[in-house]
Write a protein that binds this DNA or RNA. Structure first.
Ligand code: MN
Ligand code: MN
Length: 288
DNA sequence: GGGTGTA
DNA sequence: TACACCCAACGCCGT
DNA sequence: ACGGCG
């Protein structure tokens, strides 16, 4: 059995999944081949949610999937959620990604925990969701503000582009605290930001509260909630990718949608040092 | 994309 | 054989 | 209790 790469056959490898960007199903698999050394540890052995677009991102069909369908490829692992018995999905290796690509998966989302410790999250996520038309520089400034606050609390942090309109700031955790603890921490953190700068931030998701502001989406930190995985493609016309970056890059103006499949910026990023290389070393227990 | 249910 | 259908789900918030 | 929302 080949490890690390697959010869799994793709049906219709030349089908355009991102017609506007000219990215085919094979092109998507090639993307994952290129990023896999950096991506693997963030996606394997975690419950997943999938955004599937079997006819491409411009097609009619697009759906979100958290549970197994009958007959799914054996490279896609299934595990009963101890809470409700639903069959959660996960992958163990690159063959799993290949199987996802064959299914028309255009976004890979991860739970904030591994399958071996499903009740103790190993990360906190702050998902910055700006209102339409907010200046990208305001979003960068908000992201840097989150870093400053986390630094002040002595909490490790890394950042990635979302591939959409914002950034994701991640606190690597040792999986000690439970979901309630982690979500409450994230909620309190978001509310503190809103209180200190209510013109810029809101901790309330409603469109109304978000007008002209950035929603600090702490709700990603709930059991069963998911966030787009590092290096996942996005179901946007441009085939953007969520990419880990360094804090200096954010300071120097990197934008949330600056990276895309086959893009120059991504190729360059992959040649530089891994911005999240120390992720596992940085892990810290919340509270403790 | 593909299994399932209905004709 | 030929189709249509399904593919998550839940807490938060304003009313 | 319901609808919008992520
Ligand atoms: Mn977001
Ligand atoms: Mn969000």
């Amino acid at each position: 059995m080949e490890q690390g790469r697959t010869q799994m056959d793709l049906s219709h490898p030349d089908k355009l999944l991102w017609p506007e960007a000219g990215v085919t199903k094979q092109g998507l698999l090639d993307h994952y081949t290129a990023v896999w050394p950096r991506m693997e540890r963030f996606v394997v052995n975690r419950p997943l949610a999938l955004v599937r677009a079997p006819d491409g991102v411009a097609g009619k069909q697009r759906f979100f999937q958290k549970h197994a369908s009958p007959g799914m490829h054996e490279a896609i692992g299934k595990m009963a959620d101890p809470e409700d018995g639903e069959e959660l999905l996960y992958i163990k290796d690159f063959n799993g990604v290949a199987a996802l690509v064959q299914l028309g998966v255009v976004e890979i989302h991860i739970w904030g925990c591994t399958i071996d410790a499903i009740d103790t999250p190993d990360q906190v996520v702050f998902d910055l969701d700006p209102d339409e038309g907010l200046d990208m520089n305001d979003v960068r400034a908000a992201t840097l503000d989150i870093r400053r606050r986390l630094d002040g609390l002595g909490l490790p942090n890394v950042v990635k582009t979302s591939g959409g309109k914002g950034f994701h700031v991640i606190v690597p955790l040792k999986p000690k605290a439970d979901w309630k603890t982690v979500k409450t921490f994230a909620h309190d953190f978001a509310e503190a930001m809103e209180q200190s700068d209510p013109e810029k931030y809101t901790a309330t998701l409603s469109k109304k509260a978000r007008t002209g502001r950035i929603f600090i989406d702490y709700l990603r930190n709930a059991r069963g909630s998911t966030t787009v995985a590092p290096y996942s493609s996005r179901a946007k016309p441009n085939a953007t990718v969520s990419v880990p970056v360094t804090w200096p890059e954010v300071e120097n103006g990197v934008g949330p949608a600056d990276f895309s499949i086959d893009g120059k910026a991504l190729g360059k990023a992959l040649k530089a040092a891994d911005p999240w290389g120390d992720f596992d070393k940085l892990r810290k227990a919340l509270h403790g």
